[in-house]
Amino acid sequence: MATEFMSNEIALLAIFILSIFVGFEVVSKVSTTLHTPLMSGANAIHGVILVGAIVVADHAKTDLELGLALAAVVLATINMVGGFVVTDRMLQMFKGKPKAKKDAGDDK
């Protein structure tokens, strides 16, 4: 039992560390215009804490626990759903941008 527990902990640690590297790599080169939407999109992704909020709401034993868990569900939903919608709205504004660059270049 003890060894099984350890290996699970190590597996989680490995996942954690590998995720750090993936996170670093995946956004290493981004143009400044995309900084805000990227931040907003990443912001929406951590709204997946909703999953955790649902799990704790499921096994809450007291009213206090249930109340806090449901508050977490509400907040996490706002973060996740609102985050993806607002990011999409931002990106809608950017469409057609590469073409604009070309036109400006022709002026010279």
């Binding site: 996170g23 670093f24 900084h35 990227l38 931040m39």
Partner: peptide
């Protein structure tokens, strides 16, 4: 863990 760490790491770089 995966989602949180991804955002944590990419957010730091950003």
């Amino acid at each position: 863990i995966v989602a949180g760490t991804l955002v944590g790491a990419s957010g730091t770089i950003l």
